[in-house]
Design a protein around this nucleic acid. Structure first.
Length: 469
RNA sequence: UCCGGCAUAGCUCAGUCGGUAGAGCAAGCGGCUGUUAACCGCUAGGUCACUGGUUCGAGUCCAGUUGCCGGAGCCA
């Protein structure tokens, strides 16, 4: 049987086909409105863009009474008909149907969890398998995709290679947080060594293994060969973090740049964030308009301002001085040497700078072993990019490329030197200055949508006591 | 993990001083209408998270449990 092509709603509404074309549309019913003038109006949505297309279903259709008049939110349909200029207000184009085929009914409209009404984000989370059907989560999903595609486009355009660093790691050296164990041992009957410890030599990898908490150490090896590299993949932290900014499984982007220092690193971070949000503004205007109206009134000025402005860079020491002189009474008093608390970061981004701020050169005692030691003997070449409402969106540093200094730091922190043998090799064979950062992808999505809870910008959030679906 | 809050109809919530439950939305039926967050009327819908306690009587007071939300810490 010959059937008219079924373009996406996006294609139809953007005028890809001339008026009077015979078309089909496939999607799900958002709303049905009946008119006594002898027709029903079906809002058909297929996720290809924010808007649904209106299908006019005449009462003369064979299945009008038996089926069309019973359609409710969520029903799947295939409609064929003619694309016409709309007689009504609110849309320029619509389809006058000559057939409406119901592909899938909603079995009980009253208990369908995505009823056509406002729902709380909490309710949507409890129905994560259905929530992509809502305006809100659909828009988040399209923006998320746009940012992901823009990430690859940006780095590719800058000459970076995408490196697939491992998900499973037997390296105990990453040191970025609590790790999830990966094991095939029978937990009800664990093999033991003579001194009573679990005998991991009998485990799948012959040693302890975990899910990665960062691809950085691995990607540095490729940086020392391909010069410009990045990772973009899932990352796992077993921290018992219960906040709107943390997930146990999240996606992280970690570029690593050879022959570069901290300023080059901050430049890259700034160019990258601007490229991300420019892509969203250019490609997802429909979705951003929805967020601007219903989620965050200030979203568009904030994004447009960011892509136009220059990021404010602040030495840690200077940031501390600003905070000390602010006259604000913080819950945690500020003094040189402490890590900045959320309230301090918020003051800097929301009140001092009113935009993203790059804080650089932190005290070495609060930062990781691999960060490059500055000449002052007190600080390391680390940076955090802080964004209003989101907090730390990027954390990065210039890496310590001098073997003696790296070894000294490993020893100072009481780390087990031999574990780092291959990382140290990079400093033994052709070491060069290099730098990189990690960007929490979901935090970028938060910033770009105005959403507040990170669990609403990833399809299936994993967090403590939360691994449904 | 710590601090605070919440849990009542499919959903969002109200429920006074302790006296066996109410609204809006959604849904169903009817009316009206080239409609569009449609509108108007009617109808149906409840193990008040769970366990125990106080009381003649508990949605309400007390204790515990579970789950969720917000903040903090950890970080991206």
């Amino acid at each position: 049987m010959t059937q008219p092509k079924a373009p996406s709603v996006r294609a139809l509404l953007s005028g890809a086909l001339p008026v009077d074309s015979a078309v089909a549309v496939q999607g799900w019913i958002r709303t049905r409105r009946d008119s006594k003038a002898g027709m029903s109006f079906l809002a058909v949505h297929d996720g290809s863009c924010f808007a649904p297309i209106q299908v006019v279903a005449p009462a003369a259709l064979d299945n009008y009474l038996s089926e069309v008049s019973r359609l409710s939110a969520g029903c799947a349909v295939r409609c064929t008909g003619k694309l016409v200029a709309s007689q009504g207000k609110g849309q320029s184009l619509e389809i006058v149907a000559d057939s409406v085929i119901v592909l899938g009914w909603v079995e009980d409209p009253e208990t369908y969890p995505m009823a056509p009404k406002k729902h709380t984000l909490e309710h949507l989370r409890e129905h994560a398998h259905l929530r992509a059907r809502t305006n809100l989560i659909g828009a988040v999903t399209r923006v998320r995709d746009t940012l992901a595609q823009a990430t690859h486009r940006f780095f590719s355009g800058e000459g970076f290679s995408w490196i697939h660093t491992p998900i499973i790691t037997a390296s105990d050296a990453e040191g970025a947080g609590q790790m999830f164990r990966v094991s095939t041992l029978d937990m009800a009957n664990l093999p033991r060594t003579p001194d009573g410890k679990v005998d991991f030599s009998q485990d799948f990898f012959g040693r302890e293994a975990h899910l990665t908490v960062s691809g950085q150490l691995n990607v540095e090896t490729y940086c020392m060969a391909l010069s410009k590299v990045y990772t973009f993949g899932p990352t796992f932290r077993a921290e018992n973090s219960n906040t709107r900014r943390h997930l146990a499984e999240f996606w992280m982007i970690e570029p690593e740049l050879a022959f570069a220092d901290l300023d080059d690193d901050a430049d890259l971070a700034e160019r990258y964030l601007k490229a991300l949000f420019t892509a969203a503004l250019e490609q997802r205007g429909d979705d951003l308009a929805f967020f601007a109206e219903h989620v965050d009134k200030g979203l568009l000025p904030r994004l447009e301002g960011l892509v136009r402005s220059e990021f404010t860079r602040l030495d840690y020491t200077e940031a501390v001085r600003i905070l000390e002189k602010s006259g604000k009474s913080f819950e945690f008093p500020v003094r040189w040497g402490i890590d900045l608390q959320s309230e301090h970061e918020r003051y800097l981004t929301d009140e001092v700078v009113k935009g993203p701020v790059v804080v650089m050169n932190y005290p070495k005692d609060i930062k990781a072993f691999y960060m490059r030691q500055n000449d002052d003997g007190k600080t390391v070449a680390a940076m955090d990019v802080l964004a209003p409402g989101v907090g730390e969106i990027i954390g990065g540093s210039q890496r310590e490329e001098r073997l003696d200094r790296l070894d000294a730091r490993i020893a100072e922190l009481g780390l087990h030197g031999p574990d780092y043998w291959w990382y140290r090799d990079l400093r033994r064979y052709g070491t060069v200055p290099h730098a990189g950062f990690g960007l929490g992808f979901e935090r970028a999505v938060l910033y770009c949508t105005g959403m507040e809870n990170i669990r609403d910008v990833i399809p299936f959030p994993r967090a403590p006591r939360q691994a449904d679906f």
